[in-house]
Design a protein around this nucleic acid. Structure first.
Lengths: 244, 244
DNA sequence: TTATTTGATTTGTGATCACACTTGCATTGA
DNA sequence: TCAATGCAAGTGTGATCACAAATCAAATAA
């Protein structure tokens, strides 16, 4: 067992090649998670185990376990028929989600404000310029990249709060609001330009000053935007037609 | 298909006998959940799929899916060996859990304070007297019943907050702090009597007055107790012996 | 034409099997 | 005596199968 001997004598190499290999189940779970946060599935869409298994080139086994996990996180919904779908959007649910996000992400950024290192601050400052880059070549909106960049920015901050309890809850909330957000972003592009970078800049300034109160307020403004926008849109739509 | 016809013509009966039967997986999941919240497993205990399957008289399939779900909720922990255990108790984790619980359960009870109906208030008032009953025959402390009653009291309140997002998060937090709580309750009984009913009575009074602020403060006092108690105990223990 | 029924297909669930990896213990060697 | 080696039991993971329930479609009856 030369490999084990090498790991024992060289703990650094052991860390570089961690013993825990990635399972198929984890890959499927991450894949579905990414798709949900990015809003690649649309609300009320029904997912089948065999369908996903074919799409992900694996058997049904890893898929059903991943689906079960996503259901417990309320990222998916189990219908009484035993079929699973991505939860539909309702006004009540949106308000509920936004309130929870304000509460928890607000607390996380307040904690982060007092704990972020200069290095971490400069990391999120660098991210700001990426928005400018993206705006420079704004011939076509790259929604995927917007979502990814926005997510990276927020979680870089949340990670700094140092709470192993809050962060998974925030991930769960993003998972649940993913479908709504994607719809809202598409609605944004119809309604003209909206400057996410401006909101993020305000957040960075507050964090640089270690001003927890300002940071929280700026964050609330940032995450509220898509929700209030989508809410207005849905209410306008329901006025025009009686049906949803 | 007379059954389908009956359901279609009688939607009430359909609700009384919901089509979704309980699966074995759900039963296993609930069982493990209950055991964890009740603290029947001790911290750092390793659980095996086949062992649980035998204990629950089923095959490995429902167990592995239930374990996967509990791992995503951070109620259990996946070690790099691929074995799963109930997470060990650390001071950092306890503080982290308590802060999150104060934040979220505090918000839930504040919402509930403005929404609870007189009927709901009287329900939790009834629960208070059960504590007195239990204290009457206090020859032996019935920890299981204490845990169950405490849980029923709190969730009767949380349900009234009307948030489909906050309640699952609270359940997840209870799942995570279950093992700690059990340890703390046993420590309580060593340290003499502690009057849970007194704290609950204060909460009920505040809720009856629809005083959200008072209710939140009383709740914080209630849920903080086992944590600060256990914290003191752990710190005292670590002073006596260098090892944990 | 419309509503009902019947049959075929699809789908989720649970059990079992095969494989790879880990763990623990006994044997062997220095 | 002690460390290293090798074997055996145990464990998690993924695939496949069997079965029951649900869904859909065509065919039949009113």
């Amino acid at each position: 067992m030369q490999k084990a001997a090498a790991e024992k004598s060289d703990p650094i190499a052991a860390q570089l090649a961690p013993v825990g290999r990635e399972t198929v189940q984890d890959r499927v779970y991450s894949e579905l998670r990414r798709a949900l946060i990015g809003g690649l599935f649309e609300p009320s869409q029904v997912l089948t185990i065999r369908g996903l298994a074919d799409a992900l080139m694996t058997s049904t086994m890893p898929v059903r376990e991943a689906l079960g996990r996503l259901i417990t996180e309320k990222a998916l919904e189990a219908l009484p028929n035993r079929s699973v779908r991505v939860p539909p959007i309702t006004l009540e649910r949106m308000d509920d989600l936004l309130r929870a996000r304000i509460l928890i992400e607000g607390e996380a950024i307040a904690l982060a404000a007092t704990r972020m290192t200069p290095k971490q601050i400069s990391t999120i400052e660098t991210m700001l310029s990426e928005w400018d880059e993206m705006r420079a070549l704004k011939q076509k909106k790259d929604v995927d990249r917007e979502v990814t960049l926005n997510q990276a920015f927020h979680f870089e901050i949340y990670r700094a709060c140092g709470s192993a309890v809050l962060i998974p809850m925030i991930e769960s909330l993003w998972l649940q609001s993913g479908p709504c957000i994607r719809v809202a972003i598409y609605a944004f592009s119809d309604a003209g330009e909206v400057d996410t970078a401006h909101y993020h800049r305000t957040i960075v300034k507050a964090l640089a000053r270690q001003d927890a109160r300002e940071a929280r307020e700026a964050l609330v403004a940032d995450i509220s935007r898509p929700f209030v926008f989508l809410r207005n849109k849905l209410e306008a739509d329901s006025k025009k037609g009686t049906s949803v």
